[in-house]
């Protein structure tokens, strides 16, 4: 199967956007998962609901919300452009941001599942052995929850390859800049004679998603072995 340079570009861009979105959301996801699992504070349920919002709200609405916040005249977008010269709308970075917001609940859920597997008694034991809170987190909690983090990252990456609604609303459909796989497929279906392109890209999409799921499964098995669970 041969892909045209334009089609290759869409594949590469999709991988780029998905990778960036995972990189951006991983640390905040770990922090929020930890807060939601281990801390009781007012507004916990609100935060939980907020994190899960992209799962239930139409993606177009998420894209619209981002447009309002990060648009060149938005409350976040304006200072970003003015002080740092960063413009997110209609850029690859913006596509990554939209993808990150959409896949954020997936990562948080997976990381939480991983964290719930960690016995707080082990952290207490580390404390009595002289490890402070950060030391405990880095040497006990983080390694033990790493299967959840990896599973979350891989799932979010695979899902991020296919994010459509939020990306097209916030970042538009610009070939080479924001036209990821699903957007390219959509564009192809709208173009007379684009059926072959759409089919090829759909096949690539399918292959990438399957590889992602298989990779996640393989990593989970390896990690459990490494952590001595079996």
């Amino acid at each position: 199967m041969h892909l045209s340079p334009e089609e290759w570009q869409a594949v590469r861009l999709s991988l780029d956007v998905a990778a960036r979105s995972v990189l951006v959301s991983l640390l905040p996801a770990i922090g929020i998962a930890w807060l939601l699992t281990r801390r009781r504070f007012p507004g916990r349920f609100l935060l939980d609901a907020l994190v899960h919002l992209p799962l239930v709200v139409p993606p177009v609405v998420v894209g619209w919300g981002l447009l309002m916040l990060f648009g060149v005249r938005g409350p976040i977008g304006a200072p970003l452009l003015e002080w740092f010269g960063i413009r997110l709308v209609f850029t690859t970075g913006g596509a990554a941001l939209a993808t990150a917001v959409m896949s954020f609940p997936l990562i948080v859920r997976a990381v939480r599942l991983g964290l719930e597997q960690v016995d707080p008694g082990l952290e207490a034991a580390a404390g009595t052995l002289g490890a402070g809170p950060i030391d405990r987190f880095l040497t006990v909690t983080l390694p033990l929850m790493s299967p959840g983090i990896l599973a979350g990252a891989v799932t979010a990456f695979a899902a991020g390859l296919g994010e459509f609604g939020a990306v097209i609303t916030f970042a538009s459909n610009i070939p080479g800049e924001t036209q990821t796989l699903p957007l390219a497929i959509y564009a192809a279906t709208q173009t007379p004679g684009g059926e072959a392109t759409a089919a090829r890209l759909a096949l690539v999409s399918f292959g990438l998603a399957m590889s992602g799921l298989l990779l996640a499964e393989w990593i989970a098995r390896r990690m459990h072995l490494l952590l001595g669970r079996f």
Partner: peptide, 20 residues
């Protein structure tokens, strides 16, 4: 004092060894 500054060694009923 937090546990890490008390220097009291504990042996728990269920050992609590770090599995990793």
């Amino acid at each position: 004092l937090p546990p890490e500054r008390r220097r009291c060694g504990i042996v728990f009923q269920e050992a609590r060894l770090f599995p990793h």
